[in-house]
Nucleic acid binder design. Structure first.
Lengths: 167, 167
DNA sequence: GCCTCCCTACCTAACGGTCGTTAGCATTGA
DNA sequence: TCAATGCTAACGACCGTTAGGTAGGGAGGC
């Protein structure tokens, strides 16, 4: 709160005529974050192939992280410190996001666009890992879409060389 | 330090005849962590194929995380709070680990075992993301090797369905 | 074998700083 | 007039650390 007040050019105590508490600020940041990430999934073209939707979901997520790096950092690191009902609400939103991601894979598999032997849980975890770790290395200047596409390319087609691919 | 003292059944101040400072404890934890993760890479069979070495590296990393969850959590979350020379040393160790992982991919590609058009940087980032995010969801009881293998399977051969694979 | 020294491990008490928050009051603009 | 915004000052809690002291046990010298 001290740092925030200083950045606003205001005394520490003055913040409390603008906000209820530090928890409240954290909560509002988390709400913004959840909304931003969900909006990325909302914008996915429904008609596109699963593989394409996954690529675009990765792009959307990384773009939010890159464009709102501070928020994304708080979103990934600080949600643990929410308490009570506010925490419950945010945890639900986080789970819902995971579930929406998971359905991308499940539906893709059911439609035969993805491997039938695909381990859904592992695939989602891999994407979520990339998404949630991104705040540590993404820099707003770089071409975030290209990175997302590289991730997607590896995820979709793997890393194995053509000559050595097993039948 | 208070929590630690309580867990040891000792007064807070008594800790300081055993350690120099909280920083020192953090530093030692980080050293242990770096050693454990590097040991995982040391044990990789040199003769194995790149794809296999990558799978085993993932296994080794996740196993360390699962078996030393507290250490791994500190290792991934708290290294930022190291200061001065101790911080520098740990940052070097972290970078070296990344570099060793990167060489798994680079050598694999150079030997033709991995796709010639592979984006090394993205591949390493993907593996590191999975590795560094693992402390948030890994539970010591579960079959960690199986999860690592699932990750490796997706990483190596991708998720795309056979019927829709592009030529 | 005994005594002395000293190191280790522990104690109590407190210091100095940080931090979130509150009370009470002043200013200002609609 | 009143709500919003700001100020000053302080409270209370927490935290890492230190000072100064005590108990005990092992090592070395006599």
């Amino acid at each position: 709160m001290g740092d925030l007040a200083e950045a606003m050019g205001v005394q520490k105590g003055s913040l409390y005529s603008l906000t209820e508490s530090k928890q409240e600020l954290l909560y509002e940041t988390m709400r913004e974050g959840a909304a931003a990430f969900h909006a990325g999934l909302d914008a996915l073209p429904e008609a596109a192939a699963a593989v394409e939707r996954i690529r675009l979901a990765l792009r959307a997520h990384l773009r939010v992280v890159a464009e709102q790096l501070d928020m994304a950092t708080v979103f990934t690191r600080e949600w643990r410190y929410l308490e009570g009902a506010r925490r419950d609400e945010i945890v639900v939103e986080r789970r819902r996001y995971e579930e929406r991601l998971r359905s991308l894979f499940r539906e893709g598999r059911e439609r035969g666009e993805l491997r039938t032997d695909l381990d859904d849980a592992a695939a989602v975890l891999l994407v979520l890992s990339a998404a949630n770790w991104a705040y540590t290395w993404l820099t707003p200047g770089r071409d975030t879409d290209a990175v997302a596409d590289s991730f997607a390319a590896i995820l979709v087609d793997g890393i194995r060389g053509y000559s050595t691919r097993a039948g």
